[in-house]
Computed example of a mutant assay.
Amino acid sequence: MSTPRFLTLPPGVRPQQIETPAGTFAALEALPVRGIPERSPALLVPGLTGSKEDFIAVLQTLAQAGRRVIAIDVRGQFETQGPDDPAAYTCAALGNDIDAIARAIAPEEPLHLVGHSFGGLITREAVIDGRTKFASYTLMSSGPGPIVGPREKAARVMIREVPEHGVEYLWTNRMEPEALAAGVSDEIVTFLRKRLLANSIVGMTTMTREILTARDRTDELAQIGVPTLVLFGEHDDGWPPAVQSEMAHRLGAECVVVPGAVHSPAVEAPETTAAALTRFWNAAESHGVPATTTTTT
């Protein structure tokens, strides 16, 4: 469970609705405080129990480099509506949404795509299907196949308890105690509850099954030729850092390890994360990105 650092929107960040043939998606849009965007835009896609608010701490910094930056709620997540049809929440179906959103945001130019955690499994579908050209691709705290470790156990609890007891039960008995034990402020706890209860139950359970059964598509992704960055916290408790490093090697991708961060670098180390993304995006736009390099920022 990601915990946004703050909920007050910074200057230059505003709520937005992205209209697409696939539906309407709730978003946060960041623009440079002064001047118009001069560089390619970026699309940020959150993880399973997250939302667009997980990127609040990096949006302004990313936009100040001269970009339009959009963070979304995926279908059935928080403020984006979704149907009661499990087929709408597979990685392939959600990947189709990413194609539609990317074309709506930047119909005439490639954009930079970032997928966090389960968002990485969704976004790689859009990259692999080849229908949309991307300026670059970043897998943030995301792995090659099913999630493992403590977050795998949490996902199995979710898939067992939500259909039987409902989301409120999951919040009261698991997520709220974890948040309080971690010292999360009352404001954020209130937001986390509101966000969780707004999610589609069908969407949440289907996406949980997807993250537990995802197949490894690294070799397919490596054939696409999009400049790729693998970025994760040094203490990631989702896909182990060693697994993500190996994935980066297989992709011929740059690999950035964020010191002190766990599974949500944009929340836990926003300035470091924003700096790494901006540098990578600038390099991808100007002359491509060197492959198979590992950086600890």
Results as ranks from 00 to 15, higher is better:
H249V: 15
I224P: 00
P107D: 03
W171M: 05
P41R: 04
L121I: 15
V33C: 02
V162N: 05
I70N: 11
A179V: 15
V189H: 05
V184F: 03
D85L: 02
G115S: 05
P150G: 11
R209K: 07
I101N: 02
G149L: 08
R250N: 10
A93D: 06
G183Y: 01
A261F: 00
G76H: 12
Q64E: 15
Y137I: 14
T272C: 12
K52W: 02
H235M: 11
V257A: 01
P144A: 13
I72C: 01
L121C: 12
L231E: 08
I122L: 05
M140I: 13
E19S: 09
S51T: 01
E268K: 05
M175L: 15
D236N: 08
E125W: 00
T138C: 02
L113V: 01
T218F: 15
V258N: 09
V33Q: 10
W281A: 08
L31G: 04
F6D: 08
T218G: 09
G145P: 09
A274G: 08
I18Y: 01
R131W: 08
V114C: 13
I211G: 06
E79L: 15
K52T: 11
T293F: 02
R124A: 10
P227R: 09
Q60I: 14
L7T: 13
A291E: 03
E210P: 10
A30D: 03
G119E: 07
G260M: 07
G119H: 12
I98S: 02
I101K: 02
E234T: 12
